[in-house]
Simulated assay, not measured.
Amino acid sequence: MKPASFIYHRPTSLDEILGLLDEHGDEAKVLAGGQSLVAAMNFRLARPSMLIDANNIPELSGISVDGNHLVIGALTRHATFHKPVVNNPVGDLLSRVVQSIAHYPIRQRGTFGGSLCHADPASEWCLTSIVLDAEMLIESKAGKRRVSAKEFFKGTFTTAVKSNELLTQIRLPLGSPAFRGGFYEFSRRKGDFALAMSLVALELDGSRIRSARIGLGGVADKPIRLSSIEAGLIGQRADASTFEAVAAEASNLITPTSDIHGTSEYRKDLIKPVLVRALTEAAA
């Protein structure tokens, strides 16, 4: 199929794009990498009357370090993370996570911010943002506002970004030198949507867990942060028995969603192995 007709704009400045969004609101869609939007338009699941191409605005791309934060421009391509973007455990973790995002050609065009705004429950970057306590910078003609990842994701394909706003920047805490990250994703084939995945961040004091952040993706309408389980891990040994117990508790707490890719029961069975593998990788 082909998309319905639309008006195409290619602004050359952030002010111009914000002006178009302020004027046209719900009628417009912003084109970043286009790996999800264009497909939806071809099937006429999305029918914007106006397409605003953000790819000619360099200030929306790039990586920098600001104090103890990694600053990611919303238009930064997935492929940027194939190698660590910062010499830090967070940089290493991001370079591992990105290998599970779709296929190589898609990673050349798809963007970090576009993935967050699409808010697919099986998005690796959405889960990463939740677990690492990301902060989003959202801009409009009226000004700027910062939104935590916890407040950003509202549900499947739904975020806190309003029709006249644009996500421009993401800030990820770099963590302490004791930070250890782990990630594991299960899909039917390499590059398919994840049926379940887990990302964890641990800080260890010897063999004991000093702090823990644990998340699951692909099993609900948005990424899940297992805060209640995190608190119970403090002071526990970072070993197989602890991880098995944590994974069993998580599996009992969650009733996953069902869709054409997998039933709730099937996803529930996946929670334990993906969580154990992510925890084991973080502690290794």
Rank of each mutant, 00 (worst) to 15 (best):
V131D: 02
S5M: 08
A79H: 15
S49V: 13
T255D: 15
R237V: 05
L279D: 06
P48T: 06
A46Y: 05
R237H: 03
P89I: 10
A4F: 09
R267Y: 11
Y8V: 00
A240H: 11
N42L: 01
F6D: 12
F183I: 13
F179M: 15
Q99H: 14
E165W: 01
R180F: 07
E265G: 04
C126I: 05
R77P: 15
I57E: 09
T263I: 03
H103E: 08
S241T: 09
T76E: 11
L37N: 00
L75A: 12
L18M: 08
V200A: 00
Y266D: 11
R277G: 03
T80I: 05
K144N: 15
I229C: 11
M136N: 07
I271R: 00
Q169W: 05
G262E: 06
I138W: 01
T156W: 14
Y8N: 08
G67L: 14
S123G: 15
T158N: 14
V131E: 04
L116N: 09
V71K: 15
P173K: 09
S140C: 11
K268E: 13
T128L: 13
L116E: 08
N55L: 05
I209M: 06
F112Y: 13
T12P: 00
S211R: 10
R107P: 09
K83Y: 05
K150R: 13
L253F: 08
F243E: 05
V30Y: 06
R171A: 13
A284M: 10
R109F: 06
S5C: 07
V161E: 04
I254R: 05
A196Y: 02
L45K: 02
A231Q: 04
I214M: 11
A240Y: 03
R146A: 06
T159N: 03
G19Y: 02
I260Y: 05
I209L: 02
N252S: 10
S148A: 10
Q35R: 06
S49R: 15
W125G: 03
P84D: 08
